[in-house]
């Protein structure tokens, strides 16, 4: 946090640097990343309407019980998780979390989870007339209809899925990409060609830890997804590459952001907005603090804001 004054993330604030993602206005370019925001847990710590956007926990067609425990392990400068998208399902979401988030004035990105194309389609259809502001299609969970592989790793399958979902909704649709691929540009293009309005990247990287007392993996599932500051340089390079290949597509950058400075790196790399994930698990107020730090940073140093405005940093 060097060079920054420490501000009060809870004090009322007039945002000066907003952003637009696929036609949706964000009052600042910082959102919460899916899986690291829960209204009952986080709503007590800050005013959720003051975030650029709230990306919810993945919503599946029916309640999911998630994976066995232990579901979490530490990584150097990060964590590994295998929660398995435990969530109470879309019916519960529509009558509970979504109306409450909207009543509080939040800009809501509903994260959509599925095990199959059918699952995704069911949820997207159920959300088509909901007050959700954007949909974020999480295509990096294991997909039973594609031989156990994540649909996000297969450009053809991804294109087919997004094409199908596009026909079901007029809402701005963000596709959240997995970094566990050989060529991120190929899958990014497949999503956009299928009708994605924006891309968010990156989801977690596959990783694991081993308990040295037993020689066995710490996570019950063996492997999980790595997040936190340790993945920041990797995430940045993915955003940079996709931005260069697809100059016009709105991008939400995600991966290890825990300060206004690291958020700005993503904006320079070509992101239109960012989401804060693992940092929120270490400090509940982190997403709001990042938003305030970025807003103040761009004010205190207008030359940085100018650089961004030119939109050429990533070229």
């Amino acid at each position: 946090m060097s060079g920054l004054t420490i501000m009060d993330p809870l004090e009322p604030h007039a945002w000066r640097h907003g952003t637009v993602v696929a036609g949706t206005l964000w009052k600042n370019p910082v959102g919460t990343a899916s899986g690291t925001f829960n209204l009952d847990a986080c709503g007590g710590y800050y005013d959720v309407s003051q975030m650029g956007a709230i990306s919810t926990k993945g919503v599946s067609p029916v309640p999911w019980e998630g994976n066995p425990t232990p579901r979490t392990a530490e990584s150097p400068a990060g964590m590994v998780n295998s929660v398995g998208l435990q969530n109470p399902g879309v019916d519960h979401y529509l009558v509970d979390e979504l109306p409450r988030l909207k009543a509080l004035g939040a800009n809501v990105i509903t994260n959509v989870a599925g095990h199959s194309d059918e699952d995704y389609a069911t949820v997207v259809e159920r959300l088509a007339d909901s007050p959700a502001d954007m949909l974020e299609i999480n295509v990096s969970c294991p997909n039973v209809s594609h031989g156990g592989m994540s649909v996000g790793t297969d450009a053809k399958a991804l294109n087919r899925l997004i094409t199908r979902l596009r026909a079901l909704t007029d809402k701005p649709m963000v596709v959240k990409l997995t970094p566990n691929v050989t060529d991120i540009v190929e899958v990014a293009r497949a999503a956009v060609d299928g009708g994605a309005d924006a891309l968010s990247l990156i989801n977690t990287l596959v990783g694991m830890r081993i308990d040295i007392n037993t020689g066995r993996p710490i996570l019950a599932q063996g492997t999980g997804g790595v997040s936190g500051p340790c993945i920041l340089p990797i995430a940045l390079s993915f955003v940079w590459r996709v931005r260069q290949a697809l100059p016009e597509v709105p991008i939400i950058g995600i991966g290890g952001i825990d300060s206004g400075l690291t958020a700005l790196e993503f904006l320079y790399a070509g992101a239109n907005a960012v989401e804060v994930g693992a940092a929120a698990l270490v400090d509940p107020v982190a997403p709001m603090r990042v938003a305030r730090e970025l807003d103040d940073l761009l004010d205190e140093r207008p030359e940085l804001a100018d650089l961004l405005e030119k939109g050429e940093c990533w070229r």
Partner: peptide
């Protein structure tokens, strides 16, 4: 006791099975 992630109810890492469903140990 449970291996926790965030400890305040967000990450859903530390769950336990109960007759009321799979609940968070931390919250």
């Amino acid at each position: 006791e449970s291996r926790m992630g965030c400890g305040y109810g967000t990450c859903v890492a530390c769950v336990v099975d109960t007759v009321d469903g799979r609940l968070k140990v931390c919250k």
